[in-house]
Every structure is written in C-alpha cells, then in structure tokens.
C-alpha cells in the first residue's frame, strides 16, 4: 500500500466506527495492545479533542443544551463537517447553520446563539487592526466621498433577540422567553476585550454600508429619517471611532 493509501486508511480508522476491516493488514499488534486497540487511542483522541474544543468555544450553547445533548449534537456536526481549518477555534464555523437544519425545534432555536458564540471567537482571534483611526484623521475636503477601512475585529450579525438575551443570561435556568424577532448585533474587540451590542436599525444599516466600502455620504444617508440627522450621524461616527471600529478613512482617487 502506498503512503497516500495508508494515510487514507488511518483517516477512515479515526473517523468512522467500526474501523475498516483491513486495518490489521497494515498495522502491527504489539505487546499487550492489538492494532485495533492502538488505533482506538487515536480515534478517541480525534473525537475527544474536537468535542472538547467545541465545549470551550460554545460555552453558552453547551449550557443551554446540557453536556450530553451537546456532545451528541456536535459529534453529528463533526461527522458532517470535518475540520477545514488549522485552528481549533474555527471548528464551529458551520455549527449555527447546522443547528438551524435540525428537526428538534429546541435545538434549531439555538442556531443563532451558536452563531453569536462563533462570531465572538472569530473576533477574538481576528488579526490586529492595521491602525486605529482618530477624528483628527478626517479630511473635511474629501470626507463625504471617503470610505471606511473597518477593523478586522468587527462583525455585524442579524440574530434572534432571544439568542442575545440567552448569551447574556448566566445559565440555562434563567433562560429568557422565546423571541424570534431579528436584531442587528455588532461584535468587536477593543484592545484585548470583546464587546457586543444590539444596534438601532439606522446605525446597523449604516454599518452594513460601511463594511461594504460605501462612501461616508451614503452611510450618513441612513440617518436621513432621524429628527436631527446630522447630530445622529455625528454621534454614530464618534461612537465607531471610540469603539475602534475604524482603521482608516480611505480617500477616493482623484478623477
């Protein structure tokens, strides 16, 4: 058997139960442990390490489901979604959508909590912002046409309100009432600290445009319906700078 085939056999042996029948043809029984028992050590390690990592990355989800259901659920998830990233923290990237597809409504209802916890992890490990913009970086001559370079440690999500409430609750016993209305939620890192906040709809629309490289003028249009649009836009921009959401203002090229 060639190297590639042996590695394929090893992979199937750790991933699937029962292990392939040809295992003993290619691995040695040694001492007190037969080849199959030896491979079981790797199989146990594969599942334990990844389930353990998901417990660490999704503590609120694990609380909400209980350890036994959480373990069963994430084992099904890992069977369907073997890891595609070298970092264990990225293992749960598809867990939210996976939960949303589950038939058990109690499990499916927690999909947004999983998405929130994964977003928090992504923001925690996001690269360092290249710079942090200040109000003094604003050039009044080009400001309206400039766009924003957002921090890599910022995400905007739309989540069920009860997912946010559940995250904020300290344990499952105090789980909030069901509320499947969607709310815009910003998750960001400032320094070494994670933050999250439900945004007003106008600010969420403005941030969504900013993340898509719209101009400041287009971003500020989101506040046009506000009784004092200029004040509201100024407040939002000031808050974004204070939260370290902006790396720089990108001046458009001259025509």
């Amino acid at each position: 058997m060639k190297l590639a085939e042996l590695q394929g056999l090893f992979w199937r042996s750790v991933r699937f139960d029962p292990m392939p029948p040809e295992l003993e043809e290619h691995f040695l029984d040694q001492g007190a442990l037969a080849a199959r028992a030896r491979m079981k050590l790797y199989q146990d390690g594969y599942w334990f390490r990844q389930v353990d990592a998901l417990f660490e990355c999704f503590p609120r989800l694990a609380d909400a489901l209980g350890a036994e259901v959480f373990t069963r659920t994430v084992c099904r998830y890992l069977t369907e979604h073997p890891s595609r990233a070298p970092m264990l923290e990225r293992l749960g990237a598809q867990l939210g959508p996976f939960l949303a597809r589950q038939q058990d409504p109690a499990v499916a209802a927690l999909a947004h909590l999983a998405s929130l916890e994964h977003a928090r992890m992504e923001v925690l490990i996001a690269p360092q912002p290249r710079a942090i913009a200040a109000a003094s970086d604003i050039d009044p001559e080009t400001f309206a046409l400039a766009s924003i370079e957002p921090s890599p440690a910022l995400q905007l999500l739309r989540l069920r309100r009860d997912a946010v409430s559940r995250w904020e609750a300290s344990c499952a016993a105090s789980a909030p009432a069901l509320d499947n209305a969607l709310a815009p939620v910003a998750v960001w890192r400032k320094g070494h600290t994670l933050h999250q906040q439900i945004l007003d709809e106008d600010e969420a629309q403005a941030l969504d445009l900013a993340l898509r490289q719209a101009s400041i003028a287009e971003i500020f249009d989101c506040f046009a319906e506000h009784p004092t649009p200029e004040r509201r836009a100024f407040q939002a921009l000031t808050a974004w700078l204070q939260r370290h959401w902006i790396c720089s203002f990108l001046t458009p090229p001259s025509p």
Partner: peptide
Amino acid sequence: HGGHFGHDLWPLPYT
C-alpha cells in the same frame, strides 16, 4: 487528509 484537519500528530510509516 483530503483538505481536512485531524488536529492530531499521526505517525508516518518509515519507508
């Protein structure tokens, strides 16, 4: 293996 990560250090055959 096949674009997936095992998050483990699996031994090689010494060939």
